[in-house]
Structure formats: C-alpha cells, structure tokens
C-alpha cells in the first residue's frame, strides 16, 4: 500500500527492540479501559476492601514491570539501594513516564519514621471516575498504590502502600495521597547503610 508503513515483522518477539517510550494513546482510551477494569472487579467482590485489593494487584503487575523497564531505559541501568533514591525514582521517573509529570509532592510522615507520602492534586485514575456515595472511602488510586508497591517490593523495599483522599481547604475536589509504610527490614538496612 502506497504511503502506508508496513508493520515490521520480527521472527520472534525477543528480536523486537524495547520501545523508547514515545508512543501515546488518547487519555480517553485509557479512561475507558480503566473504567472497565474497575467495573469488572466490582462484579468479583463483596466489599470495598476487596475491590481495592484487586485493583492494587492489577497495579502491582504494572509496577513490577515498570521498575525493570525504566531502570534500564531511563536510569542507565542504575539500581537504587537507598530509600530516598527509590522514592525519588517513583516520584519523578515512574510518575513522569506513566502520568506525564512528576508527582506534586513527596513528604516524610511526621508521626511515623517508616511513612512517606506521595501526593497528587488530581491523580490520573481519579480524574474521570466519580465515586458513588454508597462506596464510602473507595479510591481508584488503589491501582496506583499497587504500581508503587510493585516497584518498591521488587526493588527490595517492601512496603504497605495505600491510596487516600485528603480534603483540601478551599478546593472542591480532595487530593489523593499515596501512603507508603516501609517494612522494618527496610529501615534497619537504611540505618546500617547510613553508617
């Protein structure tokens, strides 16, 4: 066909080069797909906690792959060994590639040594889904929490990661905070490495 690029055929998928990450789809295409992910999972569960867990599991599958892909492509095969390093990787590199911008903020928890928060005024997955009142505290950000957990766990920084809505004075819509609570072993190792 004149003028139409023909799909390059590779004898095997392993021969195909890794993508440079420049390809895009419409935001609405992602929104429609994500909406189906949520609706499908709603049919599989009895309660909100289970729904969030399933979304988190789906996100985890994305996170574990994104870690390897982005460290290789964006970080010149540099493996993060320190807490702030991996958090920075999530807040900047992962966020920038997946959501088109670095996260709004990365903060250390004030009450607990093992807690950190990544916040976003308008998290992508919460932009186009409005939660019905009878679903209480359900947050689609559970999917993103799963992505973060997938990255952290596989990088050797196990953590409990959850998504929360935080109302902001003067703003109609709450912001979303991804709360990361690191396992003891992570803090112990950090202390050891800091010496």
């Amino acid at each position: 066909m004149i003028g139409v690029g023909k799909m390059k055929q590779y004898s095997n998928v392993l021969d195909k080069p890794l993508s440079k990450g420049k390809q895009e789809v419409s935001l609405s295409a992602f929104a429609f797909l994500f909406s189906e992910l949520v609706q499908y999972n709603q049919t599989q569960v009895d309660n909100i906690a289970e729904l969030e867990r399933r979304l988190e599991d789906a996100g985890y599958a994305v996170g574990s792959r994104v870690l390897e892909l982005l460290c290789n492509r964006e970080k010149g095969n540099r493996r993060e060994t320190r807490l702030l390093g991996i958090l920075s990787f999530v807040h900047s590199t992962v966020w920038k590639v997946l959501f088109g911008k670095v996260a709004d903020s990365l903060e250390k928890g004030t009450e607990h040594e093992d807690e950190y928060m990544i916040s976003e005024k308008e998290l992508l997955v919460n932009r186009f889904i409005s939660i019905p009142k009878d679903m209480g505290t359900f947050n689609c950000g559970a999917f993103v929490a799963g992505i973060v957990k997938g990255v952290l766990d596989n990088a050797g920084f196990p953590a409990v990661v959850t998504a929360h809505f935080v109302p902001i004075e003067g703003q109609q819509r709450p912001r979303t905070t991804i709360l990361i609570k690191f396992a003891d072993e992570v803090l112990k190792r950090e202390a050891r490495l800091s010496q």
Binding site: E24, V25, A61
Partner: peptide, 24 residues
C-alpha cells in the same frame, strides 16, 4: 484530532490492558 486531545503514555495503557487480561 489526536494532536489536540489529552494523551497518555502508551505504556501505561499497554501494561494496564495486560494486567486486565492476566486478571481475567
């Protein structure tokens, strides 16, 4: 149209779709 609308990285889309198929 594509240039004028909001877009996202295709990898987010591809990986999310993969997670859906895997879940199913």
């Amino acid at each position: 149209i594509f240039s004028s609308i909001d877009r996202v990285n295709a990898e987010l889309f591809t990986l999310t779709y993969g997670a859906i198929v895997r879940q199913l």
